[in-house]
């Protein structure tokens, strides 16, 4: 069985700094795979390489067995590799319905239609309403996103990615900054994501990682320290030293 997402000897240098150091990952289809590591471990660079925001210095990336190293970010999205952002990246003056409509139209190949009014494609609107309702945003369809409370914006952040129908979804600290009482909403949503969607979770929050992930890769100084099941990682003495010993919430 081919893996959903693999990297081969991925390297990224910024001048003299090695931000990604020969990273070879293999993430199985349908996995709940966490990437953890202390600050500066290269998690953000890695996610930028995977999604195509950055080009690697060397190495290859494969999505569903296909080499995607050279293709652009938006083309990777169309092939099913979608991400969320640690800091919300939403369209401030658009509504949640418009935002999801964009993602869904784009996926259907109608995103460049210029001769019809946006919102007249019943299929697109129906899907957007359904997804937003599923994400607990059914009551704020028409409110410009910058007026939404932070927790709702966080849900929209994930809903936007989900609307792209990802095969591999990269979640960059999905619960970052969300107050305790609203975390349950996020976690409920994460647990309800379809089993066939491969999830890569980049997270600081160990509680969330250990309760959600089935495999964990530990990054240190741009390279892979170790990879294993939740139990193996929890017991690993090196991981304890470099990571768990530190304050997880910097």
């Amino acid at each position: 069985m081919t893996a959903a997402l693999t990297t081969h000897d991925l390297v990224k240098n910024f001048g003299g700094l090695v931000a990604t150091d020969h990273v070879s990952l293999s993430i199985a289809k349908g996995a709940r795979h966490a990437l953890i590591g202390p600050n500066g471990a290269g998690k953000t660079t890695l996610i930028n390489l995977l999604t195509g925001v950055l080009q690697p210095t060397s190495g290859r990336i494969q999505l569903m067995g296909e080499d995607v190293t050279a293709i652009s970010q938006h083309s990777r999205v169309k092939r099913g590799l979608v991400r969320t952002f640690q800091i919300n990246q939403i369209f401030a003056d658009l509504t949640p319905l418009q935002s999801l409509g964009l993602a869904i139209s784009e996926r259907h190949g109608h995103g460049s239609d210029w001769w019809r009014v946006a919102g007249t494609d019943q299929g697109v609107v129906a899907e957007a309403v359904e997804t937003l309702t599923q994400f607990g945003l059914g009551d704020v369809l028409h409110i410009p996103t910058h007026h939404l409370p932070y927790g709702k914006q966080r849900l929209l952040e994930i809903a936007l990615a989900f609307a792209c129908k990802p095969q591999v979804l990269l979640l960059d600290e999905p619960a970052a900054g969300v107050p305790e009482e609203e975390r349950h909403d996020i976690i409920r949503i994460l647990k309800s994501l379809p089993a066939d969607v491969t999830i890569v979770l980049i997270e600081h929050d160990m509680e969330l990682v250990f309760s959600y992930a089935d495999r964990i890769t530990v990054l240190v100084n741009g390279g892979i320290l170790t990879e294993g099941s939740v139990d193996e990682i929890a017991k690993d003495q090196r991981v304890r030293t470099v990571y768990l010993g530190e304050d997880a919430h910097d």
Partner: peptide, 24 residues
């Protein structure tokens, strides 16, 4: 007012995210 026009507003508002939902 079309989907194309809406996508322009999205690119203007946040081109990083526009790319991340598949908009070129």
């Amino acid at each position: 007012y079309s989907p194309f026009g809406l996508s322009l507003r999205a690119v203007k508002a946040n081109s990083l995210r526009a790319g991340a939902i598949g908009i070129s």
